[in-house]
């Protein structure tokens, strides 16, 4: 079980959080102008990387804020945590 450092609350047990999948997939501003393939790319395609992955997490049993983190999925090491809207760190 991880310890995650919520950017608003600090270190908490993983059980207080909910994972929200891959980060930095922006909802298209004009979905109606997309082809089926382009919309499917947004809707379904996820990388599921073994290694460094950028993820969305929600402090659901805490401040309820969404934020991003960078995790090495091969050993669960969390490399960085940052707020929504902040620039993703390069790792």
């Amino acid at each position: 079980m991880f310890i995650i450092s919520c950017p608003y609350c600090g270190e908490r047990e993983q059980s207080e959080f909910k994972a929200g999948g891959e980060a930095h997939i922006v909802r298209p501003k004009q979905p109606t102008e997309l082809s089926d393939d382009e919309w499917a790319e947004y809707l379904f395609m996820r990388k599921n990387i073994k290694g460094i992955q950028y993820e969305r997490w929600n402090h659901i049993h805490g401040c309820r804020k969404w934020f991003n983190l960078v995790r090495d999925t091969s050993n669960d090491e969390i490399k960085s945590v940052y707020k929504m809207g902040e620039k993703p760190p390069s790792i």
């Binding site: 929200g20 922006v26 909802r27 929600n58 659901i60 309820r64 969404w66 929504m84």
Partner: peptide
């Protein structure tokens, strides 16, 4: 509730 918060915080802040 969670879904609405998600959209408000991440897509339409």
């Amino acid at each position: 509730m969670g879904k609405l918060e998600d959209y408000l915080q991440t897509e339409w802040p």
